[in-house]
């Protein structure tokens, strides 16, 4: 982080990969070579992306620190800044400020079996941890991935999903809410789909990220299967602005999601009044 916590560093768009009709992955790298090396981040952290003249918005870093040099951001065009992001072409400049927030508990879960449950555009934050785990495979136990989206073209990282499917030591499941003629896989919402798979809770930590309604049902399902609150970890999506715990927007209880999160365990969330209403 530069001395001035509000000053972004200039980065260039190296590659643009359309994922779904309204979501694309932007691969960026800092212009300043020295910063390119020194920019150390953990999986699960996010950064504030700036389109100068339009504004800033917080986007999770979807790549893993184990894969050097380039940062990947998966952006859906929903607001003024994300719309402007979608107007970027290879070679355009933008501002990147970060890394911000806490990260997935990569050390605490060593040796454990891992269950990843992603919904729609909730997969990118999980993907940074999945890549990290796959790059340090021996430090972790079995890996199960359950991912769902509204429709086949709403699935992100379509090629990478195939790679994960072919990996021998990854138990991969994918579903879509509504299939179409190009789809021969499972059809149905993620929570019931998860119940059919019924992954056992012993020595396992579950990571989930997706639309609030899915998270609510997934957590209920996991609790029915015997998962402890401490073993269910998610990343919250709240209105963030400064990203450095000062502007007062993203508070739940006495925690600032941009400083004390966005990664929380459900045990923590249960203790904060009003955290789960959101």
């Amino acid at each position: 982080m530069t001395a001035n916590i509000y000053l972004p560093s200039i980065a260039t768009v190296r590659e643009v990969r359309p994922e779904t009709p309204d979501t694309s992955t932007y691969v960026v790298s800092f212009d300043d070579p020295q910063l390119r090396e020194s920019f150390a981040y953990e999986p699960g952290q996010f950064a504030e992306l700036s389109i100068f003249g339009v504004g800033e918005c917080p986007i999770g870093i979807a790549s893993s620190p184990t894969r050097e040099g380039l940062l990947e951001f998966c952006v859906r065009a929903v607001g003024t800044v994300t719309d402007a992001l979608h107007d970027l072409e290879v070679g355009d400049k933008l501002g990147v400020r970060g890394p911000l927030g806490n990260s997935w508990p990569t050390t605490e879960i060593e040796g454990k079996d891992l269950l990843f449950i992603g919904g729609g555009i909730g997969l990118p934050p999980l993907r940074s941890l999945i890549q990290y785990v796959l790059d340090n495979r021996d430090r972790y136990g079995a890996v199960q991935i359950v991912y769902g989206a509204r429709s086949p073209q709403d699935l992100v990282y379509k090629e990478e999903l195939k790679e994960w499917e072919d990996l021998p030591d990854v138990d991969f499941h994918v579903t879509v809410d509504a299939g179409d003629d190009t789809w021969d896989g499972a059809v149905g919402f993620v929570p019931p789909f998860l119940k059919d798979i019924n992954p056992s809770p012993t020595n396992k930590v579950a990571f989930t990220c997706g639309p609030p309604i899915m998270i609510k049902l997934v957590v209920e399902a996991l609790e029915e299967m015997g998962y402890a609150d401490a073993d269910i970890i998610t990343t919250l999506e709240m209105k963030m602005k400064c990203g450095v715990g000062k502007c007062g927007r993203c508070n739940i209880g006495d925690k600032y999601i941009c400083r004390d999160g966005p990664v929380f365990s459900f045990e923590e969330l249960r203790s904060i009044p009003g955290a789960l209403e959101v």
């Binding site: 509000y6 100068f52 003249g53 339009v54 504004g55 400064c242 000062k246 007062g248 927007r249």
Partner: peptide
Amino acid sequence: CFDISDVGSTSDGVRYRCWDSCMYSDFA
């Protein structure tokens, strides 16, 4: 509490910080 917003165009402008209020309906 404060807000951050850009004034100016995409080619020339200033990023301002200004007071904001948690009592405004669209704050969060």
